[in-house]
């Protein structure tokens, strides 16, 4: 009961502290606001980069060309052998006549050239389009498929695909590093600002010590003040990121410049972004204050 009275007293004390030192509070709040806006934007950006690269990787396909003149049973046999491979996610058969039509649709020149051939004399080959689970071992899977009987050629953009995957990996890592670095910088900036604002209240802390307040008692209201400041500071970034992104998404019609670069649907990420921003603001505010007060508890 006694501890509870002290706690509730300290919480109301912290609200008073925020409003009676309003100019100092405002300094902390605006610092939190600006840095959290940056964190929010980088978070959304990294989500989109990840979304884009994952989509591209999913589209990578192994094209398997079969030998000319294979029978339907042989095609089935090859298909079942490929399906058995552990890394294969999906397989789709594309007969040589389907391929011919696709090519003819693409250009007038090919159309006239290929129209000389009937279905029987079609020089093209039957193909399988294969997607894999783990994009990093696409090369190994292609090698295995190549050894299967009646398989003539295997193409997956070797060389350029490996490069692409490497680049995507680096880009993803960079976005993670940027987000984490920004959160750390935010923590540092906010706790420093709070340190400065608390410095001007060291007299208050000193007096608390002198009238017999325990260290825990002195830290409590500053701890709650930090939470309040962090929370208030997170409001504008949350509004800016969530509504701003929703607006941008609607305005651009769900993709950036072209349909190749889709944007992440806002409803999928705004709650996570919201949570992260509040958590960073509140935690950093609370522990920043807590740490800053400790320095003045030596009187």
């Amino acid at each position: 009961m006694k501890a509870f009275r002290i706690l509730s007293n300290n919480i109301s004390e912290s609200f008073k502290g925020v409003f009676r030192n309003f100019s100092l509070s405002l300094a902390s709040i605006s610092c939190i606001t600006i840095t959290l806006i940056l964190v929010g934007f980088s978070l959304i950006l990294s989500y989109n980069v990840n979304n884009f690269t994952t989509k591209i990787e999913k589209d990578l396909t192994i094209v398997t060309f079969l030998k000319r003149g294979v029978s339907e049973e042989e095609i089935e046999e090859v298909k079942s052998k490929i399906t058995e491979l552990s890394n294969v996610k999906s397989i789709e058969f594309n007969s040589k006549n389907q391929v011919k039509e696709e090519i003819q649709d693409e250009s007038e020149v090919f159309k006239s050239i290929l129209s000389q051939y009937t279905d029987e004399t079609n020089p093209l080959k039957d193909t399988f389009l294969i997607k894999v689970e783990d994009i990093n071992s696409i090369g190994d899977t292609a090698d295995v498929i190549k050894e299967i009987e009646n398989v003539d050629l295997v193409k997956y953009g070797e060389g350029s695909v490996e490069e692409l995957i490497k680049i995507f990996d680096i880009v993803k890592k960079i976005t993670y590093v940027v987000v984490i670095a920004l959160i750390l910088v935010t923590a540092f900036l906010i706790s420093n600002t709070i340190k400065i604002t608390i410095q001007s209240r060291r007299r208050e802390i000193e007096i608390r010590r002198l009238v017999g307040a325990s260290n825990a008692f002195i830290k409590q209201p500053f701890f709650f003040e930090g939470i309040i400041l962090g929370f208030i500071g997170a409001v504008i970034p949350i509004l800016a990121c969530c509504f701003g992104y929703q607006y941008l998404y609607d305005k651009l019609g769900g993709h950036l410049f072209t349909a190749i670069i889709p944007l992440v649907n806002p409803t999928n990420i705004i709650y996570i972004v919201m949570l992260v921003l509040i958590a960073v603001g509140v935690l950093v505010g609370a522990f920043g204050s807590y740490r800053a007060v400790r320095k003045y508890l030596k009187i």
């Binding site: 009275r5 002290i6 017999g212």
Partner: peptide, 10 residues
Amino acid sequence: AFALEVYGLK
């Protein structure tokens, strides 16, 4: 009152 609040009195 501040000097008393640290005791958690009513």
